[in-house]
Nucleic acid binder design. Structure first.
Lengths: 344, 344
DNA sequence: AATTAGCACTCAATCGAAATGAGTGCTAAC
DNA sequence: GTTAGCACTCATTTCGATTGAGTGCTAATT
């Protein structure tokens, strides 16, 4: 059997309708919904075919039909094909006060969630292969040094370390020059033993401090790699969809969203669509078990070479794929543009 | 009528039992629960009295009794009186890597939630009246300055600003000295026009930069005051309590916890118990409407003079007050001790 | 006078049979 | 190929009967 014009129209009508209502949709509904060109009986025959082909299912005999995962998949693929060129403008909420990446990401997630009415997720960029841009030591008080590390993408990290004996301002100045001239532009992997021993040699009496500083820098960056930052927002939006809001499902889904370590796999996988990095998981396709009754759309954004993060939307299977995909594509475009500008 | 010994015993038994089961408790249950010294009939009479006095209620005729808010209140006050001296040791999860206050607070909330099985909330300290400890300007690249601000309590803030024309390293050094010698030890309110104009005068050609820096510093601190940092954890724990997990209530409660701005009032109010700063809200007593079916326990911790934050637990009315109060008291003690040490 | 046993009564929760109705599949007519 | 008509299915709703935990009251007991 083949998916002819009419079957496609009917399938789309079923999916659209089900997305709106969340209820199984029957033949009569569709008959009225689609210019009433065909009677309910005809629709019934077509639906019977569509069911046989696996695009729709009956939750039980004598109920209407709902789209199967395969049905959704067809629908989504259809949309992914239509490369919409119009880029609708997103409100200029972005990046008034840059510099605190976290804040921006959180705001972004919040915005995304309230725009779509689904749950949103955003992961901070990962730091391996990331170039050191700037290091600064400062004396906060007699025995305490503040280390500020700036890496590519203008991500700033602070640490405080205690030193054994006081260091004069001038010595700190020299250390700063030393550190920056030797380390700037290197990735964390490139700071190998050779570089380190050369540094320590030049530091003379303060080789101990150099050690301390390098350890902290490595630890800070490492820590961020390990406990990957993931922010979620609008998790409670799922209560807007009855099929997800019974206590068992809601509990499972929400606690997964709360324990961000369980979302790792979702942000690790790079999107399939090579151009936009967009990936759509429908139901069981999701790498996260708790989301088998949802659909998840993720997209990858880029801050610089090798500096990638993920944005995601989690909603019911009947989510408005068209809107979500459009929004994400749009956002990615803007993000990429923004960071490119900020960075250069 | 008076609350005699026996009535108190029975009231406590009812509350304890209800806390365990979450079901209305009947006379026979209590009769067995309390050394079976009294028969169910006796208990019934006493329960009748207790109901008349308002300590317990029947959800409907011919059901057992459950504690009223007044009943819980009695119970809690009882516990608050018993100043327990034994301070149980909390696991040494705290403060391995200090300096990133946020991380510590988040970890703390997570810990608290998983220890108690209730939802936990923690607010970062508020910054007004906070002393500036250290300012540092650094040149990241030709047109960009990094401003690092350290305030009392070792809270570190970063901002990046763009400058119109390049400033030499030496000039930056001078600016740093100028800023630190003039501003250190001042609160944000104390940096008034007098101080500012004096600063600008001394800065000479770079008075513009001073302006920029001061604006940023004020803005950063202001921003943190405005959007008070509140972290929640274990919100989904509420699904463990059937009386809170029906879709409507759960949705309301969880979205309140998600939109932290709605928790403002909870962390604004300073605890009533003058010594420990602990405050217990039972049901309607809570300033947050969405929590009228819950109990909320908050405690205030201190980082330094005028630098206060709040920790809170949100759970069902039948929460284990004894455990919660003990845990919070304990935590506060340790927090205070830790920050005192760190700070000095 | 306080306590307890006994019994009638109440009422939410549970169960199950019947009614409802949305929706299907099939057949026969158009 | 399309449609009208009808019997059939089955989740959901409705409603009365049943159950059982728990009470209040009274009379007997200590």
């Amino acid at each position: 059997m083949e998916l002819d014009e009419r079957k496609i129209t009917i399938l789309k009508a079923i999916i659209k309708n089900y997305m709106e209502t969340g209820e199984p949709v029957g033949s009569r509904t569709i008959s009225k919904y689609v210019n009433s060109k065909w009677s309910s009986a005809t629709i019934r025959n077509e639906m019977s075919d569509l069911e046989e082909m696996g695009y729709i299912v009956q939750p039980h005999t004598s109920a209407g039909r709902i789209p199967s995962d395969k049905g959704y998949r067809f629908y989504v693929d259809q949309i992914l094909l239509e490369k919409d060129n119009e880029v609708t403008e997103i409100k200029e909420m972005m990046v008034q006060r840059m510099g605190r990446l976290e804040q921006v990401l959180k705001a972004l997630a919040k915005n995304l969630a309230s725009n779509t009415n689904y749950a949103a997720l955003i992961s901070g960029p990962q730091y391996h292969r990331n170039k050191l841009k700037f290091i600064q030591l400062s004396k906060v008080d007699a025995r305490r040094l503040l280390i500020v590390t700036v890496v590519e993408g203008n991500i700033i990290k602070n640490t405080m370390v205690a030193v054994e004996e006081e260091i004069s301002d001038e010595e700190i100045l020299n250390l700063n020059i030393l550190l920056n001239s030797n380390l700037n532009g290197l990735t964390i992997e490139e700071i190998n033993l050779g570089v380190i021993s050369r540094l320590k040699e030049q530091a003379g009496v303060h080789s101990k401090v150099v050690d301390l500083v390098l350890n902290e820098v490595a630890a800070v960056i490492k820590a961020d790699e390990d406990e990957l930052q993931i922010y979620t927002s609008g998790a409670t939006n799922i209560f807007k969809y009855p099929e997800l809001s019974d206590s068992r499902k809601a509990s499972e889904l929400l606690s997964t969203l709360e324990h961000t370590e369980m979302l790792q796999e979702l942000v690790d996988t790079v999107g399939a669509d090579s151009e936009t990095g967009i990936q759509v998981y429908i139901g069981d396709e999701s790498p996260v078990q708790a989301m088998k009754d949802c659909s998840v759309v993720t997209a990858t954004y880029e801050l610089g070479e090798g500096l990638k993060g993920t944005i995601g939307i989690i909603g019911p299977k009947r989510m408005d794929y068209e809107k979500v995909l459009k929004t994400l594509r749009n956002l990615i475009t803007q993000l990429d543009a923004t960071f490119k500008k900020e960075d250069g």
